[in-house]
């Protein structure tokens, strides 16, 4: 479990996160929602060790984050960034193989290729193996990067160490079909491998279906925390995110379904 205790983060003059406490559990999906500038990405960066904390502590399976070296941390968690810009012709298979850099010892060619093939098949991009990364569409690039994360998490198998994946708006540039595929994929991995997920989402309905726990952030503070049903209420959406919405039970799943209403017809919603 990742325990976050009262962390504050400052970037230059700006206080981005204020006294945040939360837990991320293995095998569970924690989704953070909030408006632009709420501090979602900074929170993700802080959890993955990219930001220094002004105060507070992050404890990663009983080890303090600042006592862990970069490599050790990289063996425990992978990060799917929002976008990655590459100026060079990098071949997809070379990029995905970079996930194996976190291994302690040099892996055999055979092992690397097995990991590569599995990961590319997992994201349904096996046919793109020899393509150049920057010639792919945004969604395809995202899936290649996810494959790299899978290789990273799979290349050192420690039975007793928890693994985590951090997703910064994973569905942002995907088409609707791929959004659901990606989410199904991640859900499957989480349950099968007991991986802990921390994800940032803008689409509240995806968040509602995906999450075990939702964190609602506003101006660097954690405002609400709980199951989708507890957090995604029309009251919370209005006060924290400033949107008007009708929240109903989802027709198929056990989660809320959110219909947002444009400001011009908000009277109807009342």
């Amino acid at each position: 479990m990742i325990e976050v205790k009262d962390i504050s983060v400052r970037k230059g003059k700006h206080q981005i996160l204020k006294k945040l406490s939360l837990n991320i559990r293995p095998g569970k999906i924690t989704v953070v929602v909030g408006n632009n500038g709420a501090g979602k990405t900074t929170l993700l960066e802080s959890l993955t060790g990219a930001n220094s904390l002004e105060e507070g502590e992050i404890i990663w399976d009983r080890i303090s984050l600042n006592k862990m070296n970069l490599k050790n941390l990289a063996q425990r968690r992978a990060v799917l960034s929002q976008s990655v810009k590459v100026n060079f012709p990098v071949i997809v298979s070379d990029l995905v193989k970079m996930g194996t850099y976190v291994a302690d010892e040099e892996l055999s060619e055979k092992k690397i290729n097995t990991l590569l093939d599995h990961a590319l098949k997992d994201v349904e991009l096996y046919a793109f193996k020899d393509r150049v990364f920057n010639t792919l569409s945004g969604g395809e690039q995202k899936r290649v990067l996810l494959a790299k994360c899978l290789v990273q998490l799979n290349c050192c198998n420690w039975a007793n160490v928890n693994k985590y994946i951090f997703l910064d708006e994973p569905t942002a540039s995907l088409d609707i079909q791929q959004q659901y595929k990606l989410i199904e994929k991640i859900k499957y991995l989480v349950k099968r491998r007991n991986i802990g997920v921390f994800a940032i989402f803008h689409d509240l309905n995806l968040a509602a279906q995906f999450a075990d726990e939702i964190l609602m952030l506003n101006s660097g503070k954690l405002i609400k925390r709980g199951s989708p049903r507890e957090v995604l209420t029309s009251e919370n959406l209005k006060t924290v995110l400033g949107i008007h919405a009708i929240v109903q039970p989802h027709p198929l799943y056990d989660c809320p379904h959110i219909t947002t209403i444009p400001y011009s017809i908000k009277k109807v919603s009342a």
Binding site: A74, M98, Y101
Partner: peptide
């Protein structure tokens, strides 16, 4: 940042 995420 990506490189750091890979433990470099």
């Amino acid at each position: 940042q990506e490189a750091a995420y890979l433990g470099i």
